[in-house]
């Protein structure tokens, strides 16, 4: 088992009720999982917890044997650098860096930079000619492909994606998603994808629904 979320409860500071209550789920290596749920149900929150971006008050998350609650901030940052990669709906890229630099950035940060692999990714994502551009000079679909490429350049064990195609039109979104699923399968990474779309959820190995703070 790659990821194990057990009885996690999360309350945002100042909020009356917890967003997540006693949530448990697990994910195997190379498994793809879709998480659906109403807006505001806590999907993104759960994803952030798994991505070691935020803390929680009760329960435990374990990735490959590493318990999150044992980690300090530096440890969590280390996890983000090496094991988990994230693709968000928007603001994924570092505006100051070029496409090529963005693609390599995460891998270099995690010490797993492989120029050939990165070049292959760029090729397959259709970004080979855009290497010297800056993010603001790209379309939304292109930006998302860079984000996916950057995440996979790291060869993460777990790829987290929060509505990566939510900002794109259906056709572009499908194309981007197809690419992502292909590449995830090729690298053997597990995928935890948050989406609203039943159509997309149906294409993954497993799907969970989040409602009133609980997974079903």
């Amino acid at each position: 088992m790659l990821l194990d979320v057990r009885s996690v409860t999360k309350t945002y500071p100042g909020a009356e009720r917890p967003v997540l209550k006693d949530v448990s789920l697990s994910l195997d290596r190379s498994e793809t999982l879709a998480l659906t749920g109403e807006s505001g149900s806590g999907k993104s929150t759960l994803l952030h917890l798994v991505g070691a971006l935020d803390g929680f008050e009760a329960g435990e998350i374990t990735l490959d044997g590493t318990s999150y609650s044992q980690l300090d901030e530096a440890g969590r940052a280390g996890l983000r650098r090496g094991a988990v990669a994230l693709v968000f709906q928007q603001f994924n890229l570092i505006p100051a860096l070029t496409v090529a630099q963005n693609l390599a950035f995460h891998a270099r940060l995690g010490g797993a930079y492989d120029p050939d692999w990165t070049a292959t990714l760029a090729q397959r994502l259709g970004l080979a000619d855009l290497g010297s551009r800056y993010p603001e000079q790209l379309s939304g679909g292109q930006q998302q492909r860079v984000a996916i490429g950057r995440a996979l350049a790291l060869r993460p064990r777990l790829l987290l994606a929060d509505e990566p195609t939510g900002n794109l039109d259906e056709a572009t979104g499908d194309a981007v998603l197809d690419l992502m699923l292909d590449l995830v399968r090729d690298t053997g990474a597990a995928l935890f994808l948050v989406t609203h779309s039943e159509r997309i959820a149906a294409r993954l190995d497993r799907r969970l629904h989040l409602g009133s703070g609980q997974v079903a």
């Binding site: 280390g78 650098r81 090496g82 603001f91 100051a96 950035f105 995460h106 995690g110």
Partner: peptide, 16 residues
């Protein structure tokens, strides 16, 4: 913030 948030998400600590 939009400049540093991605770097943080990619594994830099806030102290860094």
């Amino acid at each position: 913030l939009p400049q540093v948030a991605p770097a943080w998400a990619l594994g830099l600590t806030r102290a860094q």
